[in-house]
Design a protein around this nucleic acid. Sequence first.
DNA 1: TGCACGATCTCG
DNA 2: GAGATCGTGCAT
Length: 174
Amino acid sequence: MSRLTSDFYKQDAVTVAEKLLGKTLVRALDDGTISQYTITETEAYLGEEDLACHASKGRTPRTEVMYGEGGHIYVYLIYGMYWMLNIVTGTVNHPEAVLIRGLDKIIGSGKVGRKLSIDKSFYGENITASSRIWINEAPDVLNITKASRIGIDYAGEEWKDKPWRFILTENEPK
DNA sequence: TGCACGATCTCG
DNA sequence: GAGATCGTGCAT
């Protein structure tokens, strides 16, 4: 299994969000422990126009990394206690990102950040070169459910209902 | 310089 | 159904 390269992350956020399903997220802790998780749920945030995307407020120290090239990590603290793990996608000056909402046996973006020991030190980390977090290639999956994004009612009618949440569903027995 | 709020979760 | 808890953006 090989690590996904920067070309993969240069695609648009919606495409990357969908393709990340089934891929393997690898986390190497400081103590040497290596854990692998299958990505099961993602959400796409696409550009300044997307009122649900943090970059809709423009370029700030916090959103800066999203304006860079895809393949870097965007983390931020929400509700004062949860670190959200995002992967920047797209090209330079296109602020896009994919939120990792769920992994195998870990459902919920807040729990993902806690379980993987994510904090602000991961801000801007290059996920194609990091030695503590990366994503491995895996075959594309077919059972994908699309849904609207969570917790963004403030984004207005046009954006809050976009089907940009992707969920990997279990194979139904035949 | 202050304030209201958020891409959440847990407990009661 | 409410509290925990704090960085950020915008108002003052």
